[in-house]
Design a protein around this nucleic acid. Structure first.
Lengths: 193, 193
DNA sequence: GGTGTTGTTGAATGATCGTTCAAGATTATA
DNA sequence: TATAATCTTGAACGATCATTCAACAACACC
């Protein structure tokens, strides 16, 4: 008997993710959200509960998409080639709201320990790192990476390199594509001898 | 004939830098500043003009200190050893307001192109990178780094690695010291063969 | 000790913050 | 077509935002 919502919840979360990704947590006001989502306060709070709850949904969406993109890449090219291609892929997309990782931006802005959103983002970063670890282990099994190296350690370094790349890409006067290539070239040094 | 201020301007800027560094631009309110600096609005605006002007001063202070620390390290240990020691040094200081670089946090929060503070921070990052380039060049002259490599390219990668390290250090469950060591070990691969 | 200059105070400004809620609009079922 | 359930609207809330300013306090010089 009810009236049905005249908006697509999935599309709204996508748009909110892009807005939060670009402007950050404190930098995004309810006015901004109302304009971007074309929603009035009442509908917004009925649909999402609060600004923070929607940010949490946006983080979920962001992390899901990132994990899916990595998984697809690994399926298409195999573990080592995926790790090698991922940095360039992440930086190449110029339609993205920002070059920097939304998880990293969230951790930096809210703090990984003090704020619930920061904790969530930090957890997602850890989850991504363990995906990288799995890929490095698989690359070792495939004979593409020196089997004496520690996959967890490689993943930690790789994750850090990616975060640095994506911060650098936000700067002016930095050739992010060249930097991504340098990171990929660094991976070749891990090949068994 | 005038009355003299009852505060130490240098100390105030230091405290403001620490507060902004920890809480960011939008995350720091005038109430926060009044409490931390023990100043009432009138004194604050007479002394600094605006919140943004003080943030700019804090950025200057932060960049000066960073450059001075690097210069001291280079003087004490020589260029290559300084580059090798710097990552661990940056992460080791647990009295700092945050592990992440204040310049990077500013760029991520305000945008390197859209906001005056972001532009300033981006410029300071570029200036640090050119210091790194000079150190790599000096390390080549000293025979510590393969002379066929491009110092600017090495500096770009090194700067990115540092930014990644310092973002990672903000996360929970990341051994920043071990990561810093891995970065230092990576520099050894640049030695001439 | 008065005078002039500057620093400090704290209330007040208008704007914007995130959020609430009563009233009206819409639609599937009875 | 009446009813019930849900969604949407938009005004209003108290809190906080960065900033201003008139009144007061303090100190160097005549």
């Amino acid at each position: 008997m009810p009236r049905q919502p005249n908006h697509d919840r999935d599309a709204l979360i996508d748009r909110a993710r892009d807005l939060f990704w670009r402007q950050g947590w404190a930098g995004t006001s309810m006015k901004d959200l109302e304009r971007t989502l074309d929603m009035r306060p009442g509908s917004f709070y009925a649909a999402f509960g609060s600004k923070e709850a929607l940010y949490a949904l946006a983080l979920d969406r962001y992390a899901e998409d990132g994990a899916a993109r990595l998984a697809t890449l690994a399926e298409e090219k195999g573990p080592f080639a995926a790790l090698r291609a991922y940095p360039a892929l992440v930086v190449a997309c110029d339609t993205a709201p920002a070059s920097a990782c939304m998880l990293a931006k969230t951790v930096l802005e809210t703090g990984a320990a003090s704020h619930a959103l920061g904790e969530k983002a930090s957890d997602y970063l850890a989850r991504m790192e363990s995906r990288f670890r799995d890929l490095f282990a698989a690359a070792q099994d495939a004979g593409d990476v020196d089997p004496t190296l520690d996959p967890a350690r490689l993943a930690r370094r790789y994750q850090s390199d990616l975060l640095g790349l994506r911060v650098s890409a936000e700067r002016r006067d930095v050739d992010a594509a060249a930097l991504a290539e340098d990171i990929a070239l660094g991976l070749d040094l891990l090949r068994p001898r």
